[in-house]
Nucleic acid binder design. Structure first.
Lengths: 242, 242
DNA sequence: AAAATCAAGTAAACTGAATTCATTAACAAC
DNA sequence: GTTGTTAATGAATTCAGTTTACTTGATTTT
């Protein structure tokens, strides 16, 4: 009601510019405050506007934060996201795991934000993280189904379970990492996951021990044969194989 | 200041009784409202007291909720919690997975509450879920280490990773379940997890189909046998291979 | 048994954050 | 310039959780 000669107004921007400003401000606040409380007041200040203005551009706080995550995560999906160039079941599994793990390693703040702030939300299903997860998850499922189709994998374990193992492991590892309980190397973890899952799913695992045992056995046999050839008859009790 | 002839007061109870009242009320509210917003006002009403009174018995809302979870989860840890009676690595793994999965299946509200409300909290580390998780996790780690020590498991994959796979898979499965994306059977899932992890970790997997390497060896053996057959017999019974 | 003490319980105030909305000011078109 | 439109404001509202000062009944002391 007062006349407010002193009232300052931010310059008028296009919808897109202002939207971008707010998104950037939000992202910056998230980066700085980590997974601590994110205040609209902080975001508004950072964007050089007032809290109420945010509601012109976003339905509510959650809507804004979801959009931030969407954008941010989108940037992380680089060219190495698709599997097209990769052959071999184990290689594919490794790549899928590695891809997610590297994003997490590269952008811990984003990951923490999505996992801890966005995910526990009641209507999490409309979250970018959710969609992305579904996509990755479908991809992994397909790898497994393909391998079963060719007979490479056992059909006695459900593909969905294998997928849950792979992605569940990644997620579990991520929580620990985000909680500050130890670092991890995307390469190593991806290698480990792919190895165990692959071996565990194989229809006809290669056993190197029985082979090794046989190897010795054969060698011994061959020696016996040689001896037999050298000294014709004369076989005594010494020739016992064991 | 007013005389308050009309002021109603809850009957005075012992500390323990009142505490129990509040805990029960909280638990009931959680059960009813599911993972929706849990209001202190609701809990107070349910307990027949006023919001402020809660702060006489609990430091704050989170403290109360954590205690509820502690109590509730404690009830679920039945006798089958320990592994003592179980032998065999795969059986142990299956049991560990099954135990958690059954609790989740039996108490979805509690699980959802712990996973979605308590876990994403900044100071989650003081949560009963956290401690419990650590305990289960250590147990699984030990199973793996033992199996490596006896030579049953490969040493080329870290035990911690195997543990993460097992528990991560359970957790991933749980999230899906709690989100209403399909039911699951503790028996089946536990069996699947144990199978894949066990097979995947085995140092000397059992091959049910002769590997190519074996075939060559067999061929060599046959040659030896042939040579032996060529050389006049003479060989005594001692030369039996077994 | 009266007085003093104590602690359970209450009601209201406080706090801090999201959200709403009537008002104002900047810009564009005429 | 006048006017219409709409971005931006900031004060008001709402809604939880939390704190506070007060009331009151029970218990202990004398």
């Amino acid at each position: 009601m007062a006349k407010n000669a002193s009232r300052k107004s931010a310059s008028r921007l296009s919808i897109d510019d202002r939207t971008a400003d707010i998104l950037n401000a939000a992202r910056q606040v998230i980066s700085e405050k980590g997974y601590e409380k994110i205040l609209l007041a902080d975001i508004a200040r950072q964007a050089g506007i007032v809290e109420g203005t945010i509601y012109r551009y976003f339905q509510n706080k959650r809507d804004l934060l979801v959009k931030v995550a969407e954008l941010w995560f989108g940037e992380q999906l680089s060219a190495d996201s698709h599997l097209d160039g990769i052959s071999g079941t184990q290689n594919k599994l490794r790549h899928v795991a590695w891809r997610t793990l590297s994003i997490i390693k590269r952008e811990p703040v984003l990951s923490r934000f999505m996992l801890m702030e966005l995910r526990p939300d009641p209507n999490y299903r409309s979250t970018p993280f959710f969609e992305l997860n579904r996509h990755f998850t479908r991809e992994t499922l397909q790898i497994c189904k393909d391998a079963i189709a060719t007979g490479e994998f056992h059909a006695d374990v459900s593909p969905a379970l294998m997928r849950d193992m792979l992605h569940g492991c990644i997620e579990h590892r991520t929580w620990a990492f985000l909680r500050g309980e130890g670092d991890f190397s995307p390469d190593e973890v991806a290698e480990g996951i792919a190895t165990v899952v692959y071996r565990g799913m194989l229809a006809h695992p290669v056993s190197n021990q029985p082979a090794a045992a046989l190897e010795t056995l054969v060698a011994r046999l061959e020696k016996v044969a040689e001896r037999l050839e050298q000294k014709p008859p004369q076989v005594g009790r010494n020739n016992q194989l064991r």
